[in-house]
Structures are given as C-alpha cells and as structure tokens.
C-alpha cells in the first residue's frame, strides 16, 4: 500500500513533514467535524462469518480500514477470514522475498488482534496487477465466497474515485464482480461438483481513503468502544515491517527540541517505543474524529449495501412484509 500513499506516509523520505501533515490534516478534520452532517449509526448485521478481501496485508488496519468493525463483530461471535490478494513484495525495504514473507506473517499477527485467525493469501504480484486477469481473480474469489459463505463482506469501494493505488482498483472491481456473480449457479458450475453451493453475500461494507474527494461517500457510521480502537491500533502497529520507523520518532523529537518543546508521554521511551505510541495515538485520533462527527465516542464510516439494496424497487416491500417462519 505504502508505495502509492501520500508523502505523509513516506517514512523514509520526510518523516517530520509526514507527522506534521498528519497533525494538520487531523486539525482540519476536527474543524470540519462540527459542521458535517451526521451519518446514520449502523448496527451489526445478523450472521456468523465475515470476510475481508483486500489487496494488501495492512489495508484493514489503518484509519480507513475495517479494524474496529471487525473487532466489534468478532466480539459478538463472528468468525473472520481475511483474503490478501497481492503478495506485498513492494512493501518494505529488504527485498521482495523478505517483504512477501514478513508482511504475511505480520498480517496474521495483526488480524489476531481484531479476532481474525484465518488469512488466505492469493499472492498475486504486488503493484503489477494490471496484468492480473480479472476473470481469473474473480473466479478465485467466487470459490472462496462459496466455500466460506460469509454473511458480511468488507472491501475497497469499486465506485470510489481517485484511488491512485492500482491494486485497490483491480481488487475492488474483482470483488464487485464476485459479489454479484457468486449467487448464480450457472457461474462456475464446476464448483457445485465439490458440494459448494451458490451464495449471495447479504451485506457488504465498502471503504476508501476519506480524503479522496467525493468519490467514496460513506452512508453509515459504526460505533466502537475504546477496546476496539485499542485492538485496531495494536493491529496497525503489528505491521512492523512498514510502520515501525524509529527514525520518524527521533525526527519529531529533534524538531520539538529545537523549539524547546517535548511530549511528556514520550519521555523515557526509546525511538522505537515512541513511534509505536505515536501510531497508536493516530488511530485514536481518527476514530475519535469519526465518532465526534457522528455523535459517538469512536467510529468508522463506510458505504454499506444491505440485504435487499440490490433490488431498489423491492427493498422496502421485503423489509416490511417478511415475517418469521
């Protein structure tokens, strides 16, 4: 993911400006929070299994990810499965094979914090996914959807605009195709020979970066508590290969020292410990911001498509007239 992020995440290039921009963005968001229109507060859909399908090892944990939602759902009894589509070989500084292995290992450690113990890696080549055949990737996802029959799917928004990361674009389109087609028996009928059945996932949550203009516009806020945010923050910090950058903390503290300032909470911490703390704070900041905007303590925001939204003329009728057996 990092290869296509804004400078604020380019830890190697300009760490001080990185944090500075983050803080500036946070302040701007805070100011806007007071005038933003509140989103409806979402409830957790009924079900037993969630599936996150994402291009990269860390897409679930950062501030626009699904970490808090997944933590809340697994708390309520959901089983979680994460499908990593790329091999993340570009994410890190120690060569492709090292990055591939370490990022997958850290991904497994990270999602354990949010209650997910199953990670399936499809290992398509990171940042070369333009040549990944859409239909082939879709077929893999349809197979997994039919095998695991999730009640909830989480993915990047295929209708989001301005996502500069081509892996996100490719994977979100493949997810949209698989989500649409997995319920039709005439699609990949060979799967039925394995005893699998067609499955339409009833609920889907889409996300995208929240600072990419009007392309991705959330329609629901999901509340979290402090425990969910803590676990989401721990999950983010677990991606040490890309986020554990002690030099960033050192630069921040040097810069503050020049101005005669310091952060008392960081006193006595090593640079490594300090950067972990800063990353965790950032996760709290973003969760608090979405919470404040929507009248909650902590929140994440998504574009949710619910059970009958794919039949706009029947949504209301089915909701109002369906009864218990």
């Amino acid at each position: 993911m990092r290869g296509y992020e804004l400078t604020i995440y380019d830890k190697a290039a300009r760490p001080v400006w990185g944090i500075g921009l983050r803080l500036a963005a946070f302040c701007a968001f805070t100011c806007l929070a007071g005038i933003a229109q509140r989103l409806p507060v979402g409830t957790i859909p009924p079900g037993n299994r969630l599936m996150i399908i994402e291009a990269h090892h860390d897409d679930h944990t950062w501030q626009w990810g699904f970490g808090g939602l997944a933590a809340r759902m697994t708390d309520q009894g959901y089983e979680g499965i994460l499908v990593r589509v790329s091999n993340d070989e570009k994410d890190g500084d120690d060569g492709y094979p090292h990055n591939d292995m370490v990022n997958l290992r850290e991904c497994k450690a990270a999602v354990a914090h949010i209650g997910i113990d199953s990670v399936i890696s499809l290992n398509w080549r990171n940042d070369y996914m333009d040549s990944t055949p859409l239909q082939e990737l879709r077929a893999q996802l349809i197979l997994l959807i039919r095998k695991y029959r999730p009640d909830v799917l989480m993915a990047y928004d295929p209708w989001g605009h301005y996502d500069r990361n081509p892996d996100h674009r490719k994977v979100s389109r493949a997810v949209a195709e698989a989500y649409w087609m997995a319920g039709y028996a005439n699609v990949h009928p060979e799967h039925l020979r394995l005893g699998l059945k067609p499955h339409r996932v009833p609920h889907i949550y889409f996300t995208q970066r929240g600072d990419y203009g009007k392309g991705h516009e959330p329609n629901v806020a999901v509340a979290h508590d402090a425990s969910h945010v803590r676990r989401k923050a721990n999950a983010m910090v677990a991606h040490r290969n890309i986020y554990h950058q002690p030099q960033t903390a050192r630069s921040i503290r040097d810069e503050l020292r020049k101005q005669g300032l310091h952060v008392p909470e960081l006193d006595g911490l090593s640079d490594g410990e300090a950067i972990d703390q800063i990353e965790k704070w950032y996760m709290y900041w973003s969760s608090e911001r979405y919470g404040r905007e929507n009248g909650l303590d902590y929140a994440e925001v998504f574009y949710q498509r619910a059970e009958w939204d794919h039949r706009p003329g029947l949504t209301e009728y089915v909701k109002n007239n369906a009864v218990s057996q």
Binding site: G183, L314, V318, A322, S324, Q325
Partner: peptide, 13 residues
C-alpha cells in the same frame, strides 16, 4: 432468490 434468502434466515414473505 428472495424466498431462498429468507428461508435461510428463518423468514418468509
């Protein structure tokens, strides 16, 4: 499809 989904979640229309 509507009937199947509802039945799988103990509902009916």
């Amino acid at each position: 499809r509507i009937k199947d989904r509802l039945e799988s979640t103990d509902r009916r229309l």
